[in-house]
Computed example of a mutant assay.
Amino acid sequence: MLGSVLSGGGGRRESPLESMAKSAARSVGSSMGRQIGNAVLRGVLGSMLKR
């Protein structure tokens, strides 16, 4: 269902190139999100421990 929403709901199969591009974008996005989450968590914990 989510795949059809992302691809515009068309019934066509995506090409291997599109599949690779989506996979790369997804992994970059999740990696960046994880780094940002870790930085925020570290900042919050650091400020709490300094008191």
Rank of each mutant, 00 (worst) to 15 (best):
M1Y: 03
M1C: 03
M1A: 12
M1R: 06
L2G: 02
L2H: 06
G3P: 00
G3L: 01
S4Y: 06
S4H: 07
V5E: 09
L6W: 00
L6S: 00
L6H: 03
L6C: 00
S7R: 06
G8P: 01
G8R: 01
G8Q: 03
G8I: 00
G8W: 05
G10N: 10
G10K: 11
G10H: 12
G11Y: 02
G11K: 04
R12F: 07
R12M: 02
R12Q: 10
R13P: 04
R13I: 03
R13F: 11
E14Q: 10
E14F: 07
E14C: 02
E14D: 04
E14I: 11
S15L: 15
S15W: 10
P16F: 08
P16V: 02
P16Y: 11
P16N: 13
P16H: 05
L17P: 00
L17M: 03
L17N: 05
L17G: 05
E18I: 04
E18A: 10
M20V: 11
M20R: 12
K22Q: 09
S23G: 03
S23N: 04
A24C: 12
A24K: 14
A25F: 02
R26S: 07
R26P: 02
S27F: 09
S27V: 07
V28G: 04
G29L: 10
G29R: 07
G29I: 07
S30W: 13
S30M: 15
S31W: 10
S31I: 12
S31A: 15
M32N: 09
M32T: 03
G33Q: 02
R34K: 10
Q35C: 06
Q35L: 14
Q35P: 01
I36S: 07
G37V: 03
G37L: 14
N38C: 10
A39I: 08
A39W: 02
A39L: 14
V40T: 15
V40Q: 11
L41Y: 05
L41G: 04
R42L: 14
R42G: 13
G43V: 02
G43N: 09
V44L: 12
V44G: 05
V44F: 13
L45N: 08
L45H: 08
L45P: 00
G46W: 12
S47N: 14
M48R: 12
L49A: 13
K50P: 02
K50D: 13
R51I: 08
